[in-house]
Simulated assay, not measured.
Amino acid sequence: MSSDEHTETGTGWPQPAGPGRPSGPAGEPDPRPDSPDPDELSPLAPERSVPPAEPVVQEPDDGATVDLSRAAGETSAASASVRGDEASARSTSVRGGGARWRRLSSAGVMIAVLLALLGFTLVVQFKSTSTDPTVGATRQEDLVRILYDLNSREVRLRQDIATLEESQRQLRSGQQGRQAALEEATRRADELGILAGTLPATGPGLSVRFEAGEKPISASRVLDAVQELRGAGAEAMQISGGDRATVRIIASTFFLDGENGSLVVDGRRLTGPFTITVIGDPATMRTALNIPGGVVASVTGDGGKLIVEDREAAEVSALHAPIKLEHARPVS
C-alpha cells in the first residue's frame, strides 16, 4: 500500500484518506449548491445557536393516539372554570358588600332626616316663643295674676273632683244611696239647665259694656269677649242692647253684623251700646279681658270703649227656649 493512498495516523497503522474537498480556482468558493459553508468546516468558526427540537410525542404501547388539542381544551376549560369561580366569588362579595352599604346608607339617610326635622321644629318653636308679642309685652303683674288664676282654677277643679268622689261613695252606700242619688240628680239638672240657658242664675260676676267710637262694634269683637270670658271660667252670660232686648248666650249662640252698627244674636237684632252680664270669678275674668292684645286693646284700637264693672250679685234672667226634639227620646 503506497503512501499516496493512505495517510499516516501516528499509530503506525495506515488510515484511508477521506475524499478531498474539491475546490475551484484559488480563492473562490465551491460552485456546488449543496456544498457546506467553508466557515462551518473551519475549526475557528464560532458556534451557532441551534433551535430547540420539537417535542416528540411517544405513542402509547396500546396503539391509542393522544389528542393534544382535546387535552389542551380540557386544560383551558378547567382554567376557565377556576377563573369563573373566582370571579363569581368576587361578584358575590361585591354584591353583599353593596347590599350592606345600601342598608347602612338608607339608615343614615333616615337618621339625618329625623334629626333635621327635630332641629327645624326646635328652631321654629324657639322663634315663635321668643318673638311672641303678647308674652313679651305682658307686664310682670299681669303674669303673676294669670298664674294666680290658674292656681285658683286648679284648686276649684280638685274640689270638684273631691265632691264627685264623695257623691259616688254615697251613691254606693246602702241606706243613703237613694236619697243621695236623688239629690245628685237634682243638682246636675240645675247645672245643666243653667248651661243650656233654660234656668236663670245669679252670683258674683262682671258687667262688660261696649261703646262704639269711630267704628261700630263688630260681631267679631263681641265674640272675642265671649270666648275670653268662657276661657276664664264664666258659667252663665246674657247680652243686652240699647233697646233693652236681651238674649241668653249659650254654646250654640251666633253673632252677625247688622245694619247701622247693630248686632244679630241668635236671629234677634240688638242696637248699641251692648252690655254682657256674666257670672263667674270677677278677678279672673277681668284679667283675661285686659291681657295685652286682647279684647280691651282691640276695642280701644278701633276707637271704642270697653267698660268693665264688678257685680256682687250679677243676675242672668234671660232664658233660651229649649229645642223641640223630633227624633230623640229620653232613655230611663
Rank of each mutant, 00 (worst) to 15 (best):
S128T: 10
E141K: 03
G96M: 08
S240H: 04
D224G: 08
T138Y: 02
L118A: 12
R329Q: 09
A87L: 06
V144Y: 11
T163S: 15
A26M: 08
P322R: 03
Q227R: 10
L229T: 04
D224F: 05
P33D: 12
G20C: 10
H320R: 11
A189E: 09
V82F: 11
S128L: 11
V135E: 14
R102P: 13
L44N: 13
D266L: 05
T121P: 07
M285Q: 03
V247R: 00
K324F: 15
N260I: 00
T277P: 05
Q227K: 09
A288M: 03
L118K: 06
A212Y: 00
T9R: 07
T134F: 13
Q176F: 09
L164S: 09
P133R: 01
E59G: 13
D132T: 01
R178V: 14
D224A: 11
I111H: 10
A87V: 05
T7S: 13
G213H: 00
A17V: 12
A87N: 07
G303K: 01
R83I: 07
E154F: 13
G197A: 05
A328D: 14
S76N: 15
T271N: 06
L223K: 15
I239K: 00
R311S: 06
L229R: 00
S130V: 09
G177A: 09
Q168Y: 14
P292L: 00
A321M: 04
R329H: 10
A283F: 07
A162P: 07
M110A: 14
P282C: 00
A185R: 06
E74H: 11
P46M: 02
L229A: 03
G119H: 00
D281S: 02
E259W: 02
P322C: 02
A185V: 06
L229N: 01
R286P: 05
P52V: 05
G12K: 00
G20M: 12
D302G: 03
D302N: 01
L199R: 14
R102K: 14
